[in-house]
């Protein structure tokens, strides 16, 4: 029986972001679409950051999942559009991020919430953190430092 796009999408739920291994590439907005044409599966992905080194690992992980399901006719296309923004992160993705200890992105005038004690009494330590997509914050109440996933609003 030929494979369906929905089927492939559900398999790809297993592909997580290498830096945040609880969130799938679909929840992060990296996986844009799965289409099937003339028996060939086409998987479109977009990078979060231009220089994100995880894109290579993600493509390898997608290949592994496809091979595991004995699909050989597929291509992975790294697309330039749409331009990724943090608005593409799904609500379940944001919740998983918080549970993992990373504060999800908020609009510029909003408080960053401590993922541990949920206090809004937090300060920026450094705009650049362990990876390009994160900043380093500290909670003023529980005193724990934590990662904040930077807000990348779409360019209007």
């Amino acid at each position: 029986m030929p494979v369906s796009a929905t089927q492939v999408e559900s398999w790809l739920e297993a592909v997580k972001d290498p830096e945040i291994p609880v969130i799938s590439i679909k929840e992060l907005g990296i996986l844009q679409s799965v289409t099937i044409k003339a028996g060939q599966v086409r998987i479109d992905i977009i990078p979060t950051y231009s220089g994100c080194p995880a894109m290579y690992a993600i493509q390898d992980d997608i290949k592994a999942v496809m091979e595991q399901h004995h699909i050989s006719q597929f291509i992975i296309h790294v697309s330039r559009t749409p331009v990724w923004s943090t608005d593409m992160i799904s609500e379940p993705g944001r919740q998983k991020m918080q549970a993992f200890g990373i504060a999800p992105p908020v609009a510029k005038n909003q408080d960053v919430v401590c993922p541990l004690c949920h206090s809004t009494h937090t300060t920026l330590i450094s705009q650049y953190g362990s990876t390009a997509c994160k900043s380093l914050y500290r909670c003023q109440d529980c005193l724990e430092p934590f990662d904040y996933f930077k807000c990348h609003a779409p360019v209007s």
């Binding site: 990078p47 950051y49 231009s50 220089g51 994100c52 080194p53 330039r80 330590i125 450094s126 705009q127 650049y128 953190g129 362990s130 990876t131 390009a132 380093l136």
Partner: peptide, 20 residues
């Protein structure tokens, strides 16, 4: 340390632009 990380993160972004 934080500044070291910032400089190299920005380097990576800009290398991404070069690649594109």
């Amino acid at each position: 340390l934080e500044e070291d990380v910032a400089l190299t993160n920005i380097s990576l972004d800009i290398m991404g632009h070069a690649n594109l």
